[in-house]
Amino acid sequence: MPVSIDIDNLDKRFVMRHTRSIKESVLWLLKGRRGDLSRKFSALEGVSLTIQQGETVALLGFNGSGKSTLLKHISGVMLPDAGTVRIRGRVAGLIEVGAGFHPDLSGRDNVFLNGSILGMTEKEIRQQFDSIVEFSEIGEFIDTEVRFYSSGMYLRLAFAVAVHTDPDIFLIDEILAVGDEPFQKKCLAKIKELNEAGKTLVVVSHDFDMVRKVCERGVVLEHGRIVQDGTVSEAIGHLRAG
């Protein structure tokens, strides 16, 4: 099978500030703390990972392990400090509720905005519009400004747009946790449909039951490094043993 995602020796560091204002900085110095007021934190360190087309992969780990940061590099939201991320095909998915939505625009306008961000042409969006609205189940609110949407309504519309982009790679970061149970089941059914069509799926979640339903492979991260890569059951077992 061809490679969908190829990550080689990926590093990502963030600067952590010890102070947040000039006043705090002055107090820091007056107390004799003349050291650096910031430090670098390694979110990802030497991460290498290859995912084949059609694989269903769960990125697992405790909070702060680097899994969401890794997913954002796959999506292109973040750029690495070192190493490479190579992607084959169109990427879509849900990393944050409402990402790519403008609060002052209606749901209708945001379908076109978010669809274009995800790589759809205006013609494609128009062709898929009715199906997107039907899947989202928020037809009566489609011309309401999304600032008035609940998190569940955001999710419905965002997921509906994402799955209609015909992605080659679909990414999900804990996002299904905000939906109600019937819509979660609907989303899971759609995810399985995408996978049966040969799409690649990468999921970040703490919901082991959901992960078992949709993923075959599990990759565990600890402190920005991969420590386990095997079946999803092996990955969950590694986390529970720790």
Rank of each mutant, 00 (worst) to 15 (best):
V214Y: 01
S75M: 09
T84W: 09
P167G: 05
G115F: 02
L79Y: 14
V202R: 01
I175D: 00
T84R: 14
G83T: 07
E196L: 14
A158Q: 03
Q228H: 15
R147A: 06
L201S: 01
E124F: 08
T19L: 08
M120F: 05
T144W: 02
E24Q: 15
Q128G: 03
S150G: 13
V146K: 01
Q127M: 11
L44G: 02
T165I: 09
E124Q: 14
V163R: 05
Q53G: 10
D11W: 13
V232M: 04
A82N: 12
L176E: 00
D207P: 11
G224R: 01
E196A: 14
Q52S: 12
T231N: 10
G54I: 03
D81T: 12
R17L: 12
G152R: 03
D173H: 07
S75P: 02
G76F: 14
L155A: 09
V97A: 05
E234Q: 14
K12N: 01
A92M: 06
I125W: 00
S48Y: 11
F148N: 12
R34L: 15
E216Q: 14
G119F: 10
L157Y: 02
G35R: 11
A82G: 15
G218W: 02
V211C: 02
G64Q: 05
A99Y: 04
K31C: 05
L59I: 09
S21G: 10
N110C: 04
G93K: 05
V161Q: 00
S150F: 07
S75E: 06
F135P: 00
I7M: 04
M16Y: 09
D168R: 10
E181Q: 13
L188K: 06
H238Y: 15
G35V: 11
S116I: 06
G237P: 04
E45Q: 15
A58W: 03
E124V: 09
V91N: 01
P103M: 14
A235P: 02
G198N: 08
T50H: 06
I175Q: 01
A162S: 12
S150D: 03
D104E: 13
R225S: 11
R147M: 07
K190W: 09
I191G: 00
I138C: 01
E96T: 07
E193R: 15
F208H: 09
R240K: 15
T19R: 07
G179K: 03
D130F: 12
S205N: 04
E24Y: 10
S205Y: 04
G76C: 11
I142G: 00
V220Y: 02
V232C: 06
N110I: 02
I117K: 06
K186Y: 08
L30S: 13
S21P: 04
I138N: 01
L27I: 15
I132W: 00
I117T: 07
L171C: 05
H164W: 08
T56H: 06
G119T: 11
D104A: 13
W28H: 11
V91R: 01
M153D: 01
A177I: 08
G198E: 05
L171I: 07
G237W: 05
G61K: 04
G100N: 08
